[in-house]
Amino acid sequence: MSDAQAHDPSIEEFDTAPGDEHLDGSGVAQGVIGYLVGLVLAALLTVVSFLLPAANLVWPPSIPVALIVLAIAQMGVHLVFFIHITTGPDNTNNVMALAFGVLIVFLVIGGSLWIMSNMNHNMAPMSGTMQMGP
């Protein structure tokens, strides 16, 4: 409980909250560099997302997949460099919560799209006209 124990980096580095900073005044440059790397990577992915579809560089049907991959990559950059999700021992809780959240997000979005496209497919003659009866 003494100060020596509280500031022992080998103890502190294993115990982090999401978004936690480990600065005692000396690591400022390190922290700023971390955020700068995140900013540059995120900006790069954003610029590619905006320019790629208009640039006629890729096979057009692959554009939605490319955009989604770029978006997921950028979310990963935000999680690592801005929210500081790590693989450290006490970040396990945060990672597990994140994994559960991601599971629910994919179930909700993927499930909705799957079910609705099936329904649209089964009701194909109805769509557009909306005319009922004989």
Binding site: M1, Q5, A6, I11, E12, F14, D15, T16, A17, P18, G19, D20, G88, P89, D90, T92, N93, N94, A97, L98, F100, G101
Partner: peptide, 28 residues
């Protein structure tokens, strides 16, 4: 308080870590 070494060793996490974890669950 300050003794946690991960995996629950050293006792319960500090308040800051519990608060951050709770807010992380809200964000998710």
């Amino acid at each position: 308080h300050g003794l946690a070494v991960g995996h629950g060793g050293g006792g319960p996490a500090s308040k800051r870590i519990i608060v951050g974890y709770g807010f992380w669950i809200f964000l998710l």
